[in-house]
C-alpha cells in the first residue's frame, strides 16, 4: 500500500494527542495532576493541537476536502465514519474541560473529572476506530490481523504517555511515575509490534493469481501484458511494495530508535534531577516520533493488497 504522508502524519500525531488526553484524564482522576492547573491546561492544548493537526492532515488525503463533513453520516457501517464521529464527539468534553479550567477553575472538582473521563473514553474509542478502519479490510492480509487495532491503541497510549512525562518534567511536576509507565508501554508496544511482524511474516500467503483469474485449472498463471503501459491508480495506490531487506532494516530502526532507546531514556529520566530529566524525556520523545513514523510507514509499505495478484504478484 502507498504510504501517504498525510495519513502517516494523521495517525501518528492524532494518536499521540489522544494518548496524551487519556493519560491526562487518568492523572487528573488519580489526583496526580491538578484538574485546573497550568499543566492540565498545557496538556489539553497540546493534545488538541496534535489531534487537530492530524485531522487536518488527513483531509489533505481527500480528493474533495470541502466535502469532508459528509464523512460523519455512515457510522452504522463504516469505521472511517465512526472515527470521524468519535473524533468530533471527543472535542466536546475536551473543549468543555478546557473552558472550565479557563473560566471557572474553582468549579466543583467532579465537573472537570467527569469531562476528563468522557474525553479519555472518546479518545480511546477514536483510536480504536482508526485501527479498525485497517483491521476491517480483508483485502489486505497484513491489516486484517487481530493485533492491528490493539497496537494502534497501545502506540497511542505509549506516545501520549511519553509526551505527558515530558510535560510533567518541563512543568516541574512529578514525572517519575509517568516516565516509568511510558517506558513499560513502549516495551509492551514493541513486543506487540514484534508479535505482529512475526504473524504477518508467517501468515500463509494463500491467495493466488490462479484464484484471482480462475485460470488455475489450465496451469500456472502469469501476466503477459498489462492493460496499460504506465502504472494506473490501482497500481500506484495499492501496488507500493518495499523490498524485504529494506523493510527489516527499517523495523530494527523503528524498534531500536523508537521503542527500546526511548524506554531506556525514560527509565534514566526517572532517576535524574528535573533539568537533565527534561532533556532525557525530550530525547525520548524525539526517538518515539522517529520510531512511530517509521512504524506507520512500514505498516503501509509492507501491506500487500490482494489486487496486486492481477498485476504480477503470484501469491498474497
Amino acid at each position: 500500500m502507498n504510504p501517504a504522508y498525510s495519513v502517516i502524519l494523521f495517525t501518528t500525531a492524532s494518536g499521540a494527542g489522544y494518548g496524551l488526553l487519556v493519560w491526562l484524564a487518568i492523572a487528573v482522576l488519580l489526583g496526580s495532576v491538578a484538574p485546573s492547573g497550568a499543566l492540565a491546561a498545557a496538556g489539553l492544548v497540546l493534545a488538541l493541537a496534535l489531534i487537530t493537526t492530524g485531522l487536518l492532515s488527513s483531509t489533505l488525503h481527500l480528493g474533495r476536502p470541502e466535502r469532508a463533513w459528509r464523512a460523519v453520516s455512515q457510522w452504522r457501517t463504516s469505521w472511517l465514519s465512526r472515527e470521524g464521529v468519535l473524533a468530533l464527539a471527543t472535542y466536546v468534553p475536551t473543549g468543555l474541560w478546557l473552558l472550565v479550567q479557563w473560566f471557572s477553575p474553582s468549579i466543583w472538582w467532579i465537573v472537570p473529572a467527569f469531562l476528563a473521563l468522557l474525553a479519555a473514553a472518546g479518545a480511546l474509542a477514536t483510536v480504536w476506530a482508526t485501527g479498525m478502519i485497517y483491521q476491517s479490510l480483508p483485502t489486505i492480509r497484513a491489516w486484517s490481523e487481530p493485533l492491528v487495532a490493539p497496537v494502534y491503541v497501545l502506540l497511542a497510549l505509549a506516545t501520549g504517555g511519553v509526551v505527558l512525562a515530558l510535560l510533567q518534567a518541563v512543568f516541574g511536576s512529578p514525572w517519575q511515575v509517568m516516565a516509568i509507565v511510558a517506558a513499560v508501554l513502549l516495551v509492551a508496544a514493541a513486543i506487540a509490534k514484534w508479535l505482529y511482524w512475526h504473524r504477518i511474516d508467517t501468515a500463509p500467503r494463500s491467495w493466488t493469481v490462479e484464484s484471482a483469474t480462475g485460470l488455475g485449472s489450465i496451469g500456472r498463471v502469469r501476466p503477459l501484458e498489462p492493460p496499460h503501459s504506465q502504472p494506473n491508480f490501482v497500481m500506484r495506490e495499492m501496488g507500493y511494495a518495499v523490498a524485504r531487506k529494506h523493510a527489516s532494516t527499517l523495523r530494527m530502526l523503528s524498534l531500536g530508535a523508537g521503542f527500546v532507546a526511548p524506554a531506556l531514556l525514560l527509565v534514566l529520566a526517572a532517576s535524574l534531577p528535573p533539568v537533565p530529566a527534561t532533556f532525557a524525556a525530550l530525547a525520548a520523545t524525539l526517538g518515539v516520533a522517529v520510531g512511530v513514523i517509521t512504524e506507520r510507514w512500514l505498516f503501509f509499505a509492507e501491506a500487500q493488497h490482494v489486487v496486486t495478484l492481477y498485476y504480477g504478484a503470484e501469491r498474497v
Binding site: 493469481v209 483469474t213 485460470l215 488455475g216 489450465i218 496451469g219 500456472r220 498463471v221 502469469r222 501476466p223 503477459l224 501484458e225 498489462p226 492493460p227 496499460h228 494506473n232 492481477y310
Partner: peptide
C-alpha cells in the same frame, strides 16, 4: 481494463 495472462 483488459489484461493478458498466460496459463499453463
Amino acid at each position: 481494463r483488459v489484461h493478458s495472462y498466460e496459463a499453463g
